[in-house]
Design a protein around this nucleic acid. Sequence first.
DNA 1: CTCCGAAATTAGAGCGCTCCAACAACGTAG
DNA 2: CTACGTTGTTGGAGCGCTCTAATTTCGGAG
Lengths: 349, 349
Amino acid sequence: MLSDDEGAPVSRIRPPTMDDVAKAAGVSRALVSLVMRGAPNVSDKRRKAVLDAADRLGYRPNAAARSLAERRSNTLGVVVNDLHNTFFADVVDGIHEVAQANGFRLLLNTAWRTDVDEREAVEAFLEYRVDGILVLGPRGDGNALRAATRNTPVVTIGLAFQGVDAVVNDDLRGGELAAGHLVDLGHRDIVHVDGGNGAGASQRREGFRTAMESAGLKPRILTGDFTERSGAEAVSALVDSGAMPTAVFAANDLAAVGLIDALTLAGYAVPDDVSVIGYDNTHLAQLRHIGLTTISQPMVAMGRLGAEIVLERPETGRRQAVCHVLTPELVVRNTTLPPRAVESRYVSA
Amino acid sequence: MLSDDEGAPVSRIRPPTMDDVAKAAGVSRALVSLVMRGAPNVSDKRRKAVLDAADRLGYRPNAAARSLAERRSNTLGVVVNDLHNTFFADVVDGIHEVAQANGFRLLLNTAWRTDVDEREAVEAFLEYRVDGILVLGPRGDGNALRAATRNTPVVTIGLAFQGVDAVVNDDLRGGELAAGHLVDLGHRDIVHVDGGNGAGASQRREGFRTAMESAGLKPRILTGDFTERSGAEAVSALVDSGAMPTAVFAANDLAAVGLIDALTLAGYAVPDDVSVIGYDNTHLAQLRHIGLTTISQPMVAMGRLGAEIVLERPETGRRQAVCHVLTPELVVRNTTLPPRAVESRYVSA
DNA sequence: CTCCGAAATTAGAGCGCTCCAACAACGTAG
DNA sequence: CTACGTTGTTGGAGCGCTCTAATTTCGGAG
């Protein structure tokens, strides 16, 4: 007798099940199920009885049981590469809009900017049997994602892999735009702090490189990783090397802000001594206090489009992967100016 | 014959089940289950056979079925009030750390800063039967959360409700600190742009009010909602009213940044014309380009603590709700100065 | 060899829900 | 009054897993 209670932690009460509700309402479990799903052919009398009983007992359907029986979860999984980057928050806004309109729930997971955590997150969603997966700012070689498409519609946003649906912006063009803007301003010595192997990084790098070379300039590239810190570290490296350029193209706004921060600390005025351009046009860039010149991607629209693609695939039975490429745009604000040496020439031009 | 194929969307192949693996490996389903969960008493021979078969078939356990049978999900649900506010990203970092160490997965959901969406998100987690729920920056009256604690451990972060575990910082004290700092600098005309009914907003407001009154000053308060935009709107209101104060205390860093942005645009220099202080000490505040004076909360630590509480409750069987109050600290940077009029007096003091 | 206990394996009953086929109820037309 | 088509309701199988108790296997000790 005593042993039943002593020391045993107070166990949570078992939540009521459909059977409990059925019993309380004096109907069958199947009827409760019908009421819960809002089926049409249920008499008002019974419906009310069921609803009352459910309410009285505090009944809440068990999503696990439901999705097991239904073989679908009515849920989309979203893997966010980096919660600290508000770029993704905007994309999620777009996804949410479409998901909501189609009666899907969203479940988020974050990848902490690493390959393994991203795989972990995708794996978790696959085990949950979500009805679709959106990967924002994917990493790695795409093999895991390609494999995942066999079971679930997957779409990446920000980087396209062979055989996986994707929504991207034209990063190559974006890189060219950024470099081109700086070149047009008269800069000759330009450094690109890249995004390492992050989503879109290689393309932006390529765009930068080609724009520079076609202008007859030598591209200088430093490795980064899309973080604020990587921007700051690049500044240290530049200071140490003693070869500070007149302009820097950062792989994204976050890095650009880190860069500006470190430049200011190191005694360089932005844009007077060094011009800085970012990428993404996040809220950060839009703050007038920062007023970052940057390349804009339509973030919310990308999210919307991604969600539409993921929902559409099972409907249409499409087999071929699609890749929507959106066009980036240059947004000039206050962090870029002609370099000191050519300023007058430029202004008079 | 034909009718089987025509027009029918290509259906996804049914993922292999434990039974499939068992058959392929020539063992029972129970054995596969044991191997999957890493049970000790399995012969190496069979274990290998099972693992091989699972690998060959691309088997992936069904989380829904598992949590249905196990009556637990090994998952914690995190409701993030606003993805755009990096404050929460830091808190999630702390939660993740602890969850990971204890073998729990994280699932996120966002509340888009509204009451109803928060309830929606919590509801979803309850239906999924997660093992614990963390609500970051809760809204509303707490009734829904209080009810939820009957089924699942719940802890709020940033605001405490009667009967619900919580981790908060001393917002009252924080409000006092902020107001006190401005008063100490010599400001007499100070406006607080509050956080409306957001988490911690009323306490910060109270702290502001008491600090002002005990200094014999009249507190001016404008309503906001913790967003960048609300900061900007406050500036419009102040400009329209024609009574620009010499200092503003924003309910959080995001709003402070919006404020600074709008002030700058309106031709007011910060901090020369108007001093601004925020709250949270997010990355945003720490950017040297902004250098926001603010009140710091230990965000990562709050996340860690919250996760520990949520995991500990079922272990210890504790019934009484706990509320951990952490102490905020003033961080002085570059957005606050003595007001113009008293500057000389202050400096000579 | 036989027998025994420990180690390894399995059968089978759920977990809480959905879904289908079967069944009751209830007018209404013949 | 019977037959019939609706509309409403229900039993029961099954979703893919875990877990307990029962069963088999196996390596010595007797």
